[in-house]
Design a protein around this nucleic acid. Sequence first.
DNA 1: AAAAAAG
Length: 526
Amino acid sequence: MEDASFLFAGIKFDRKKFARDFERFKGKKENKDLGLEVSIVGNAKSEQEEGDKSSKKRKQKGVTGGSVEGFSVFKSSNPTSEIEQNDVAEDKSSEKKEIFRQLEWDNILRKKYGIHVSGSHVPSPLQSFDELKTRYKCKSYLLRNFAELGYVEPTPIQRQAIPVLLSGREVFACAPTGSGKTLAFVCPILMKLKHGLKNAIRAVVLCPTRELAAQTTRECKKLAEGKKFYIKLMTKELARSADFSKLRCDILVSTPLRLEFAILKRKLDLSRVEFLVLDESDKLFELGFVEQIDFVVKACSNPSVVRSLFSATLPDTVEDLARTLMHDAVRIIVGRKNTASQTIKQKLVFAGSEEGKLIALRQIFAESLDPPVLIFVQSIERAKELYKELALIDIRVDVIHSHLPEAQRENAINDFRAGKTWVLIATDVAARGLDFKGLNCVINYDFPESASTYIHRIGRSGRAGREGEAITFYTEEDIPYLRNIANVMTQSGCEVPSWIMSMPKAKWKKHNPKRDSITAGPRDDE
DNA sequence: AAAAAAG
């Protein structure tokens, strides 16, 4: 058990903030302290129970060996990681009391930040970054880097995920777009890897697109500034021609296929990997990716590897899958599952037809162009088409999709970030993870295929607590699918016309219609 | 039934 002084210091320190939380504990009229005590005890208990239940469930599944196709490896079990906290049951009643108080305090913090956890013995959330030093002996360079990069207070996902990963537990986490998930998994990696100690790759981060992998690498390097960590992005050249037996690399960031290629053809050895992160994990579990992921997971054969899944959307299917695969994992949900960032103003615009979309777009540009603006379309063809169309106007516009050469993709992103491009047209290649500072507006020119696509697309704006705006065009054929998006909107506090909400619930289906050409006039048929 | 990921 760590110093109890932190515990009490914390409680004293936050008395004022308490008052706000206190209001949330409804129906407590009497003596404040007493009321607080009672309600929290109840809370702590229920959370414990939930943890026990889910661990039982896990065990049962493990026994029956619920096989999931394509996931042979995940089933190989980890040795149980030692529990750092809450489990030092020495028979002194005063220590028991302290532990109990700690549990209460943990739950107060979680409630305050909208953190929901399940799993047994979940480590306490952080109160501040400084606590990394007092509680986990974090080196000062890291805290210095945090400060220099402007990270003052940990975000909810960082508060909970960092201690859990530091304690060696596996994690699957769901937290809103732009809420600092990258730092949440990079920080514990940097803290746990003793730099230069071993000549082997000891952390692998997988991302669904190259641009995201590049961004994550950059972020990682910034956070490691001043320490001799070898952080590498799996580039085309590296995958093709590196001598991996000699390459110095502590942390490797890659897209799945390139990594698979390097393992197969270049004898890349991942047997000493200690941390494996699947960023945008629900995307990585999609058909086509999942086989590659399975291959990489197998290659990380160290039995004590700590796997973690991060995303802003966590469909039940993926969650079920994850539950069967991960061992003694802690599930962390920030806010409500599968919701959009609260800071984005979301609007729906009826555009009627393809022609109507173009008119609506021109109107937005003429009336209130507030660059930079990111525009999503459904397909590569349509991206090209819309690019041609907008290139005619006097606006700095560019386009990105996967059929462009890598360098051109990179440039498109860089120019957009640098403000050289005002309007970027994109396929869903740019829908996930990318952090465009100061992006004001996302326009869904084509209706998103699913609620999760919608959440990720609009999540390119409104990051790190800033405001954002999202406009979604829809046509007649999109109407049956409107409700999926409208639900997301209402859940994040945006107003939706009541006729949409009273529409019948559409059955879950991906919406990917054949659309008329962007420049098509009104339809002749019908 | 599109996009992404090796070339």
